[in-house]
Amino acid sequence: MTKKTRFLLIFFPIVIVILQLFQPVKNEEAASGNHLYHKTNVPESVHTILDHACMDCHSNQTNYQWYHRISPISWYINHHITEGKGELNFSEWGAINPIDQISALEDIRKEVDAGKMPLKSYQLIHKDARLNHSQTDSLVSWIKNYQGKIADEAMR
């Protein structure tokens, strides 16, 4: 064993241990009345899709796995959550005006249709997030339906 290998073997675990002392704030708020699920009645099939494929990064309620608590994975995950919530946060859905809601739903349709969402890296780990054709179809038809509902409510 060279001096260098020995140094790395001791040094590396120490770095990992020290890294554990620095953790991002957890994305685990209680769901408020502004959450999408409180604003509209989402059909069971779509509810499942959203839970499995979207809500980890697009809400204030991430469903953490044990390894998400290990730094630097925790920071990597945290970065995705911050970015995802910046684009769209279902926990604050009720605070969005109807025109922006319709646009957001249209964006969701486009992203899912184009295979850009859920992210490939996310699908790799989360098997439930891999959407099949019938799941995509039910998501798209819910989107159309809900957009109509939003417009109807705006007219009242």
Partner: peptide, 11 residues
């Protein structure tokens, strides 16, 4: 359709 118009304009 009107929803796609809204989304396009809003964007």
């Amino acid at each position: 359709d009107k929803f796609k118009k809204i989304a396009s304009w809003n964007e």
